[in-house]
Amino acid sequence: MEGDTWVLVEHWRGRVTETTFETLALGRELADSLGGRLVAVLLGHQCASLAAQLAAADGVLCGEHDALAEPSPESYAEALHQLSSARSPAAVLIPLTNVTLGIGTLLGARLGLPAVNFCKDLRVSGGNLEATCTIYGGKMEAVVAIRRQPAVLGIWPGVRPVDKGRLTGAPPVENVPVTLPQPQARFRRYLEPEAGDIDISQVECLVAVGRGIQDKQNLAVAEELAASLGGAVCGSRPVIDQGWLPLSRQVGKSGANVKARLYIAAGISGAPEHVEGIRQAGTIVAVNTDPHAPIFSFAHYGIVADAIEFLPAFTEAVRKRKQGA
């Protein structure tokens, strides 16, 4: 396996996403192992200005077309297919998010190659690429050997620290023409969520509740803790689906990525879709009755207890400290 390592740049609403930087960091490691360049592939419409953020790469391939204005998997896959057929990279790394879902699969299908998903680690072994992938909701890891190139790889968010991939500078940009038909699935418009009272991605202190709180009533204990900490309440998808909290409070894959300094995960098991949203939180405290809950691998502090019992006790302790201090 030899050649360049490509990373598809995921950008959303005019900004390069943090998942891209994480993937660039992983891509850098792979490019170094393969002895090739790290190339950021920037596809879109009037997006050339974003190239300046991609200094972690050795170069940027910029392909602009109005069919790429909205994230349309078929168009992006077609563009990637054209570019990779012409330039034969060793690997194409695509972040796995709500923006890019489907691109890798379609690219793999066009190439007649497997598109390996859920990758969290890549290494070169004996001339082949080995990808470590987490499957079954995080309960198992599979190491997959890829012998043919380009290796099409779907990368989990959070595989590497964001800052390792976020370097400022002016990477060399090569503009490439892409010819694309209009996508069959035609974008019409965006539907914005109802304006929430709070933007939780800006809140410093968050108390997150999951299925473990069992009942809408028990939100009150989370609200009290949030109030004592001067923060806000948010939740994982099941809680929003039940209607206990509005969509604006959802954390995770389809919701917000939060950057709170303190994040209390109460009754949350730690499914990958949720963890994706908290990987930039400062200090994570997890409360769960199941000592084997995956959340404990991501948290800094863990308490095996019923959230409904622990949160009031913690609220009390916080209040005491704030009064004493």
Binding site: L191, S201, L247
Partner: peptide
């Protein structure tokens, strides 16, 4: 899409 945003498509 992310952030609770949804997109409408015609297919």
């Amino acid at each position: 899409f992310p952030d609770g945003v949804r997109g409408q498509f015609e297919i």
